[in-house]
């Protein structure tokens, strides 16, 4: 069958010509989007630039947007996104500057990887043989080491879209790999650094990274786990950590969330500048009738409390 691809073109030597170009290629049930793009590049138009290499979802070169969502095109079959032969739109990965056509500048991506001290830092005496560790701990890490650093998560991260300083899902998943490595001796320092601004607390939990990851690395889950670990080792002095605690405290008490309390607790009651900065939000909420003057209460707060006690008891 025939399949039309609508491919975003950009040539820095001729920026005026930027736009979409359509190509129609022959495909079968097993043709991947990469196969189709390679047919374009090799048989129709050698001016198309893209990165690709292994064709087997292991090198991480070919993440791009397919119909608006980041995908590794070598492992995406054409018929999985266009079962009835609909035109497929291909854009370069997002959140990174475009170099040419489907090639983006990965430097910010690699710089963030470098920022998380991306190597094992064992402490103490180096054993003559291997470090002893349980297979479970190692198998657990395979889930993260599975990350091929393709940048799909970074492409579609909604925080990076508005705040380019955020370390981002890929670098944070990589950080988790060291935080949880039983051989690493710097867990607390690592968590301390990740607890800072642009770190684990800047994720909005939108799930995009989990959704688009082609290797099931679950970056957001790793970020959430590191929040817990950071609080466990005593990093409680962040708005994120206070937010988490206030959230749990008020729900436990009233059976429902107390938004007012949450805002104040998260900023810190004596943090006047931050509270003042939030004031316009509060005023707008009052105007829209969304400011609860009195905390809502569940009709059966005791049931909620028992849920808490059960979980805390475990």
């Amino acid at each position: 069958m025939e399949q039309t691809l609508r491919v975003k073109r950009y040539d820095p030597e001729n920026p005026g010509s930027a736009g979409y170009q359509e190509y129609t290629v022959e495909v079968t049930d097993t043709t991947t989007i990469l196969d189709a793009l390679l047919t374009v590049r090799e048989e129709m138009d050698g001016t198309l630039s893209m990165r690709c290499s292994c064709r087997a979802s292991i090198c991480g070169s070919c993440a791009m947007r397919v119909n608006g969502q980041a995908k590794l095109v070598c492992k995406t079959r054409v018929n999985s996104v266009a079962p009835d032969g609909e035109t497929i739109t291909i854009d370069p990965a997002g959140n990174m500057p475009v170099i040419k056509d489907l090639v983006v500048e990965f430097k910010p991506f690699w710089d963030k990887m470098r920022a998380i001290t991306p190597y094992l830092q064992p402490e103490g005496e180096v054993p003559e043989a291997e470090y002893l560790a349980s297979d479970d701990e190692m198998v657990h890490l395979v889930g993260v080491v599975n990350c091929i650093q393709c940048g799909a998560c970074v492409s579609d991260c909604t925080v990076l879209e508005v705040d380019s300083s955020f370390l981002g899902p890929a670098a944070l998943a990589k950080a988790y790999r060291f935080v949880k490595d039983p051989r690493d001796g710097h867990q607390k320092d690592r968590l301390g650094a990740l607890n800072e601004s642009s770190g684990v607390w800047d994720c909005t939990r939108c799930m995009q990274c989990v959704e688009v990851c082609p290797k099931d690395v679950n970056p957001m889950g790793r970020i959430m786990a590191m929040r817990d670990l950071a609080m466990e080792v005593g990093y409680n002095n962040t708005s994120g950590s206070r937010h988490t605690e206030s959230f749990a405290r008020t729900v436990k008490k009233n059976g429902r969330l107390d938004e007012t309390r949450l805002a104040v607790d998260s900023m810190g009651i004596f943090n006047i500048p931050a509270l003042l900065a939030e004031a316009p939000v509060g005023l707008r909420a009052i105007r829209k009738g969304k400011f609860p003057w009195k905390a809502h209460k569940s009709s059966e707060p005791n049931k909620v409390k028992r849920v808490f006690e059960k979980i805390e008891g475990e």
């Binding site: 190597y119 094992l120 064992p122 180096v126 003559e128 043989a129 291997e130 470090y131 002893l132 560790a133 349980s134 297979d135 190692m138 198998v139 890490l141 395979v142 080491v145 490595d181 051989r183």
Partner: peptide, 17 residues
């Protein structure tokens, strides 16, 4: 052993080796 010390997360046996 050097690769393991560098950080490769090789699979282990029951004794942690």
């Amino acid at each position: 052993i050097e690769l393991e010390h560098m950080g490769v997360i090789f699979s282990r046996n029951e004794d942690g080796q």
